[in-house]
Design a protein around this nucleic acid. Structure first.
Length: 386
DNA sequence: CGCACCGGGTTCTGCCATCTGC
DNA sequence: GCAGATGGCAGAACCCGGTGCG
């Protein structure tokens, strides 16, 4: 606390020395004021052209510099904030410091989202409390703010935040699920409730259209499986659902099962990307003599395959095929594609050394964690030694 | 014990466009 | 005409282990 006061005194002192030397005036307030602007306009020689309508607040700039804020970045992001006559940078910094944020983190937050310094302490305290209803500790919130300052600071509407939380709870989310959502996709909570509701309605309507019995539960399940859904546009999710339906020629019940199952994970993909990846997968599989049914089967059981870009997918498939695995086996166990090409290559090599027979034993061994794989390999090696 | 199934963790923010309200 | 609020976009996998069953 003493350090805070010291810093504050230093900032005030610096400001008064640097900017108002002749006045001998020491600002008492923590907020920056527009004294320099008022002075400079009266000091300006009348022959010079008039300054732009709103010049930057020099004393604010000094303050930010002293705080370690990247002013160039801040200017680039939100130039208007730097022109404001009155801001709360010191109080906001102090507030964040009180929550455990380091000097460096605070500077980084303000550099990336300057509007943060326009928030009042009352507003921040209230917003923090609302987040704290979901998070266990202040430190956890600080981590999110450091990661994504915009998520916390972009909206000044605490009432909307409250309504969002109530809305999500009304969908049947418990604290743990709310926590996961806010931690993973904090922007969700800055959306207007209306926007979040639109997405939920899209999901519910989709479920109902497909003959689902419980649209509310469906929406909740899809969101739980893909926490990024609510920060995507309704247009994108709608388009993706249609792409999946159309390109795979799915029946209503198949589509329903896909969406509330593993398919939820790819709903937030850019639609163009989804289309492109579907086409390249199809092309690749056709070239490998797969049937339409194989393509459908693979995507239904492992939609994440559509996340993989063309180059990565080709490399991965080629690596597996070269290692003696057949396309039929991959279609049966597409989850091996979850692992990196590098990882797959190493495992194939190691299995080759112990003479592993994929025809006899299948390829599931590739789809395990490093720990489990190593244990398995040891057992295999031991059985050879005997 | 060994395996298959399944879901979770990580990080997915930072920028631009558009409207709204003063 | 300004700044604030909010919507929307691009980007492009990999890995781990709990649990239940035979």
């Amino acid at each position: 606390m003493a350090a805070v006061r010291g810093l504050r005194a230093l900032l005030s002192l610096h400001r008064s020395v640097a900017l108002q030397p002749s006045l001998g005036f020491v600002p008492v307030q923590l907020t920056s004021t527009c004294l320099s602007r008022g002075l400079s306009s009266s000091d300006t020689k009348s022959s010079e052209p008039l300054p732009p309508v709103n010049p930057e607040n020099e004393s604010l700039l000094e303050n930010l510099n002293l705080m370690g804020v990247d002013v160039t970045k801040a200017r680039q992001r939100q130039p208007g904030v730097l022109r404001k006559a009155s801001t709360n940078e010191q109080a906001v910094a102090q507030f964040l410091k009180g929550k455990g944020a380091s000097h460096k983190v605070i500077a980084s937050i303000i550099s990336r989202y300057p509007r943060a310094i326009t928030r009042s302490i009352g507003h921040l305290e209230q917003r923090w409390e609302l987040w704290r209803n979901i998070f266990e500790t202040d430190a956890e919130i600080v981590t999110i703010l450091d990661r994504s300052p915009e998520s916390f600071f972009r909206s000044s509407d605490n009432g909307n935040l409250e309504k969002n939380i109530a809305f999500l709870i009304s969908l049947g989310m418990n604290t743990k699920e709310l926590h996961r959502l806010l931690k993973t996709a904090p922007r969700t909570f800055s959306n207007s409730v209306a926007l979040n509701r639109q997405m939920v309605e899209l999901l519910e309507d989709t479920c109902a259209e497909l003959g689902g019995k419980n649209p509310e539960k469906f929406a909740k399940v899809v969101i739980s499986r893909n926490l990024y859904i609510l920060i995507r546009s309704v247009k994108r999710v709608k388009t993706n659902i249609n792409i999946l339906r159309g390109s795979l020629k799915l029946s209503d019940s198949e589509l329903l099962a896909l969406l509330q199952g593993p398919g939820a994970e790819i709903l937030d993909l850019s639609s163009e990307y989804l289309k492109k990846n579907f086409n390249s997968l199809k092309q690749k599989m056709v070239a490998l003599h797969c049937r339409q049914a194989d393509i459908k089967k693979m995507i239904l059981s492992y939609p994440m395959v559509l996340y993989i870009g063309l180059d990565t997918l080709s490399a991965k498939l080629d690596c597996l095929l070269k290692g003696g695995i057949t396309m039929e086996q991959i279609v049966e166990k597409p989850k091996v594609l979850d692992y990196s090409t590098q990882n797959i290559a190493v495992r194939l090599e190691e299995l080759k050394k112990v003479g592993y027979d994929f025809k006899k034993n299948g390829i599931s061994v590739l789809d395990t964690s490093r720990k489990r794989f190593d244990a398995k390999l040891e057992r295999l090696a031991a059985s050879i030694d005997q």
